[in-house]
Computed example of a mutant assay.
Amino acid sequence: MLDISEAIIAEIIDFEIHVDDDATIGEAIGSVALSASMEIKVNEAYFVFGGPEAFLSIPNQGTDFFGHFVMRCMQTVGVTSTREMEGELIKVIILDGKVMAIASLKDDVFFNPLTEFPLVKKSSHETSRYYGHD
């Protein structure tokens, strides 16, 4: 469980959508994988929240972590489009150099993908990082 008393204020610099069209993915599933990330600035340091290293979703295959991530980021920040996120101030919890959760300045309702994406933790039979693929 994250300690919300450790939250610090940060600025959203950018929100990006990532397409991973690596040939091995295409051969394995006949599709691409999607991810999204938020670039966050704390003082003079930059961090990434989400992104391909955290999760990838294969369209129309299993759980849609990509869509859930985008929706929850927008809800948390209180915007109706991803473009509106740039320049917004938020609270973040950083552990081991990684942004683990974000919240609005208005409340302490944190979005933490590890708790909301129950399949992100690889099970013993899962060998890929393409979460949401059944």
Score class of each variant (00 low, 15 high):
residue 95 L to H: 15
residue 105 L to G: 15
residue 42 V to Q: 02
residue 87 G to W: 04
residue 31 S to Y: 04
residue 43 N to K: 08
residue 62 G to K: 08
residue 100 M to Y: 06
residue 31 S to G: 03
residue 94 I to K: 03
residue 70 V to G: 10
residue 73 C to P: 14
residue 41 K to R: 14
residue 18 H to W: 00
residue 75 Q to T: 15
residue 59 P to Q: 12
residue 28 A to H: 08
residue 84 E to Y: 03
residue 60 N to V: 00
residue 19 V to D: 07
residue 64 D to Q: 13
residue 49 F to L: 11
residue 40 I to Y: 01
residue 85 M to S: 06
residue 78 G to W: 06
residue 98 K to A: 11
residue 38 M to E: 08
residue 43 N to H: 07
residue 98 K to G: 07
residue 70 V to R: 07
residue 84 E to M: 07
residue 102 I to C: 02
residue 76 T to M: 00
residue 99 V to D: 10
residue 92 V to K: 08
residue 56 L to Q: 06
residue 81 S to W: 06
residue 80 T to F: 01
residue 67 G to D: 14
residue 19 V to G: 04
residue 71 M to V: 15
residue 58 I to M: 06
residue 71 M to F: 14
residue 80 T to E: 14
residue 93 I to Q: 01
residue 59 P to H: 11
residue 73 C to H: 14
residue 74 M to A: 13
residue 49 F to M: 13
residue 78 G to K: 05
residue 49 F to V: 12
residue 56 L to F: 02
residue 100 M to C: 09
residue 75 Q to S: 14
residue 14 D to T: 08
residue 92 V to M: 05
residue 78 G to V: 02
residue 59 P to L: 07
residue 75 Q to E: 15
residue 51 G to D: 09
residue 54 A to N: 09
residue 71 M to T: 15
residue 98 K to W: 07
residue 48 V to F: 08
residue 101 A to T: 08
residue 26 G to H: 10
residue 91 K to M: 11
residue 55 F to R: 09
residue 83 R to Q: 13
residue 99 V to H: 04
residue 89 L to H: 08
residue 67 G to R: 13
residue 38 M to A: 08
residue 78 G to F: 00
residue 60 N to P: 00
residue 15 F to S: 12
residue 46 Y to S: 09
residue 60 N to E: 12
residue 86 E to P: 00
residue 60 N to Y: 09
residue 80 T to H: 14
residue 13 I to V: 15
residue 94 I to Q: 02
residue 96 D to T: 01
residue 41 K to Y: 00
residue 49 F to I: 11
residue 85 M to N: 10
residue 37 S to F: 00
residue 58 I to A: 04
residue 57 S to H: 04
residue 81 S to C: 06
residue 63 T to Q: 01
residue 46 Y to V: 02
residue 26 G to I: 01
residue 18 H to Q: 10
residue 16 E to F: 00
residue 21 D to N: 13
residue 61 Q to D: 12
residue 50 G to P: 02
residue 79 V to R: 12
residue 80 T to L: 03
residue 36 A to L: 05
residue 95 L to W: 11
residue 27 E to Q: 13
residue 69 F to E: 09
residue 64 D to S: 12
residue 26 G to S: 08
residue 36 A to I: 03
residue 45 A to Y: 02
residue 77 V to E: 09
residue 21 D to G: 13
residue 13 I to F: 05
residue 76 T to G: 06
residue 72 R to Y: 05
residue 15 F to H: 10
residue 66 F to G: 14
residue 82 T to L: 13
residue 93 I to K: 02
residue 38 M to W: 05
residue 15 F to G: 12
residue 105 L to P: 13
residue 32 V to N: 07
residue 26 G to K: 14
residue 68 H to M: 11
residue 89 L to G: 07
residue 78 G to L: 05
residue 27 E to W: 01
residue 70 V to A: 10
residue 101 A to R: 03
residue 42 V to D: 01
residue 98 K to S: 12
residue 31 S to R: 05
residue 39 E to H: 05
residue 96 D to Y: 03
residue 31 S to E: 12
residue 31 S to A: 04
residue 74 M to T: 10
residue 23 A to V: 12
residue 68 H to E: 11
residue 90 I to F: 01
residue 74 M to Q: 14
residue 75 Q to G: 13
residue 96 D to V: 00
residue 49 F to S: 15
residue 89 L to T: 10
residue 33 A to F: 01
residue 13 I to R: 15
residue 69 F to S: 05
residue 35 S to F: 08
residue 53 E to L: 07
residue 85 M to D: 02
residue 81 S to M: 04
residue 22 D to M: 01
residue 84 E to D: 15
residue 49 F to H: 15
residue 45 A to V: 14
residue 15 F to K: 09
